[in-house]
Amino acid sequence: MTDRAIAKDPDVAADWDCPDQLKPSLVNQVISYGDDALVLGHRLSEWCGHGPLLEEDIALANIALDLIGRASAALSVAGDLEGAGRSADDLAYFREAVDFRNAALVEFPRGDFAYTIARQFFFDVFALDLNDWLASNPGPLRGIAGKAVKETSYHLRHTSEWMKRLGDGTEESHDRVQSAVNELWMYTGELFEADANGTALTEAGLLPDRHDLKAQWDDRVGAVLAEAGITTPETDYHFSGARSGRHTEHLGHMLSEMQILARSHPGAEW
C-alpha cells in the first residue's frame, strides 16, 4: 500500500488523531524526520567511489539508499499532511536551508572515515529507538517506521562494529575516532529536540517521550563506547537551533549542490 493509500484508508486514518491546533507541529515533525534522513543520506552518498575498501563503498551506499528512500516516503507523507500540494521532490529541492528541520549533526561534511562512522553510529542509535516507538504507535509515520526499524538494526550493527574496530584497532584509529566523538558530542542532544509543541504532541500520543528516548540512547551509546575504549567530553553544552532552521554554514553549501539542477530548470521533468 502506498503512503497515500494508507493515509486515506478509513481504517488506518481513524487509527490516529491530531487536534487541529497541533497539526502544523505534526507536519513539522514529519518534515524533521524526513530531513534528517535526506541530509544524512546525501552526506553518506558522497563516499561512493572513495571508500577505504570496496566492500565499504557498498555498505555505505546501502545505508545511504535506505535513508534517502525513507526521506522520500516521509516527505511525501509530510506534503500530504500539509495539504498545500507539495511533493517530496518539491520539499527536497525547492526549500531554502532556513526551512530545513534536520539536526545539525547530520549536515556536517563527511570528514574522515572515523568521523562518518561516529556520526552515523550516534544517529543509528537514535533512529532505532525512535522508529521502534513510531512503529508501535498510531501515527502518520507508522508504516515507514516499521521498515526503518529493520534497516536501522542492520545499520547499527555495521556502525557499532566499526566503532569497536576503530576504537580498539591501532593508535591512529583510536585517536581519530576519539577526536570525532569529541567534536560531534555537543551536536547529539539536538537529535531529541522537538518544536515548542513537542510536549503537547507527546501527550497526544503522537511522539515518544524525549527523555525516555535520550536515556535509552545514553545506555546503548555508553555500552559501545566503553567496549571501544572511547570517552566522551565533559560538557553540558549542546548545540541547538537547527531544528528551527538555524543551521550551520554547511547546509547551505550542501543544498546548493543538491538543488542546482532542479532549480535551474523549474517545471522540467527528469
Binding site: L53, L54, E55, I58, A59, N62, R157, H158, E161, R165
Partner: peptide, 17 residues
Amino acid sequence: NVHAPDAEMALQNARDV
C-alpha cells in the same frame, strides 16, 4: 567470495555484495 578483516565483517560484506 569477499574480503574482510574478520568473520563478522565478512558476513555483513557478503550480505551487501
